[in-house]
């Protein structure tokens, strides 16, 4: 008896609408667009800083435009989402076996969150926010 299996193609541009977990994945991946653009903006800021006081202060002033505020909010949310997905993934990517048993995954991710909080506080203090 000959076989005639039915091949069902995956829609290459719309497949992620098939399940909420794929949408979650795509939103994690799309954070890279905002983070990447934000890093380019930081490089521009560095360029303004290298050009001298006048251009740096013009750069800071330009950041206050409504478009810039919207972009910063988006970049901040994207960076936060990236950070949480990344730290949650550390326990998956780097399991640690001590003695016989594996260290609970929440400890590995938790340690990353603690370090993250400390580093953020240090940066905020260095920047003289308070």
């Amino acid at each position: 008896m000959s076989r005639k299996p039915l091949i069902r193609e995956v829609p290459p541009t719309t497949w992620y609408f098939r399940h909420p977990r794929y949408l979650r994945y795509m939103s994690r991946e799309i954070t890279s667009l905002f983070v990447g653009a934000y890093c380019v903006l930081l490089v521009c800021g560095l360029g303004a800083l290298a050009d001298g006081k006048e251009s740096y202060e013009a750069f800071l002033l330009a950041l206050q435009s409504p478009l810039s505020i919207a972009f910063h909010v988006a970049a901040f949310i994207a960076a936060l989402y990236h950070a949480t997905t990344w730290f949650n993934a550390t326990q998956v990517a780097m399991p640690i076996q001590i003695g016989e048993n594996f260290v609970p995954g929440s400890w590995i991710s938790g340690a990353h969150y603690v370090v993250w909080a400390l580093l953020s506080v240090v940066v905020i203090l260095l920047a003289g926010v308070f």
Binding site: A75, A79, S120
Partner: peptide
């Protein structure tokens, strides 16, 4: 990115 970009963006 995870450690530094959120606070810098803030």
């Amino acid at each position: 990115i995870a450690f530094f970009i959120p606070v810098i963006a803030l």
